[in-house]
């Protein structure tokens, strides 16, 4: 469900998430994110294969994004979002999330 590997050439950690990401595995997702965050200065998410998503996932990703920024690290999204995730971000009104002046929004580039 979660797969992490280091792209040594770019020195970027890539975390791929797929399948259902709901409250049932929210704790596992947090754990996976936490490990990935510890291991990489630049973290990239691959979210193309995500199926069901609920609010807990969005909260985890947003919180991770903010925390990383605060610590001088980055979190970016590689490629496109899966349709389910895209819908969820829109439905939950998270499109703007983290899109203040100081920092760039997590979802900004991938929602258009």
């Amino acid at each position: 469900m979660f797969h992490f590997n280091m792209d040594a050439a770019r020195s970027v950690g890539v975390l791929s998430l797929n399948g259902d990401l709901t409250i049932r595995n929210a704790a596992e997702l947090k754990e996976a994110m936490s490990q990935a965050m510890d291991q990489s200065k630049q973290l990239e998410l691959n979210l193309t294969e995500v199926e069901r998503v609920d609010l807990t996932t969005l909260q985890i990703l947003c919180s991770a994004h903010r925390t990383l920024l605060k610590n001088g690290k980055t979190l970016t999204i590689a490629g496109t979002l899966s349709p389910a995730l895209r819908d969820a971000v829109q439905q939950a009104g998270f499109v703007q999330c983290g899109g203040d002046k100081e920092t760039s929004g997590l979802w900004k580039g991938v929602m258009n």
Partner: peptide, 26 residues
């Protein structure tokens, strides 16, 4: 128009994955 209020979202380490921190203004 739906806007999420995520100010209450804590830092990652303090985040309880099963708690709702979000509020909305619609």
């Amino acid at each position: 128009r739906i806007v999420a209020h995520t100010e209450k979202l804590p830092d990652f380490d303090d985040l309880d994955p099963e708690v709702c921190y979000t509020g909305w203004e619609i």
